[in-house]
């Protein structure tokens, strides 16, 4: 098997893991574990009152934008790195 086949197989496994999560839980809304964690705190200790609130909380749409921004910053750096490697290779100066 060629190297690229192993890569494809790996990516396929990733896709299967993520897609099967959706298929196996058709009616789930995929609550984040952070929120479930806070729910468990309420079960274990119903009297606990958070003593500090987030200074600022973005609305849903804004939150999506900011998460995307976070991913974009990282992806830009990784993409730049892979791109310059390729350019160097094509020019033959390793």
């Amino acid at each position: 098997m060629r190297r690229s086949h192993y890569y494809l197989l790996g990516l396929l496994a990733v896709a299967v893991l993520l897609v099967s999560a959706v298929i196996l839980n058709p009616s789930s809304d995929f609550t984040g574990t952070d929120d479930s964690g806070s729910d468990v705190i309420n079960d274990v200790d119903p009297d606990y009152e958070p003593w500090f609130e987030s200074i600022w909380e973005p609305s849903g749409e804004l939150q999506t934008l900011l998460f995307t921004l976070q991913a974009a910053i990282g992806a830009l750096i990784i993409g730049y790195f892979i791109g310059t490697n390729r350019a160097h290779k094509e020019r033959g100066d390793g």
Partner: peptide
């Protein structure tokens, strides 16, 4: 960069949480 990208994702898991 990898920490930025990966920790921005919220991925679905087989347990029905993400």
């Amino acid at each position: 960069a990898f920490i930025f990208v990966m920790s921005s994702f919220k991925l679905p898991s087989v347990t029905g949480s993400s």
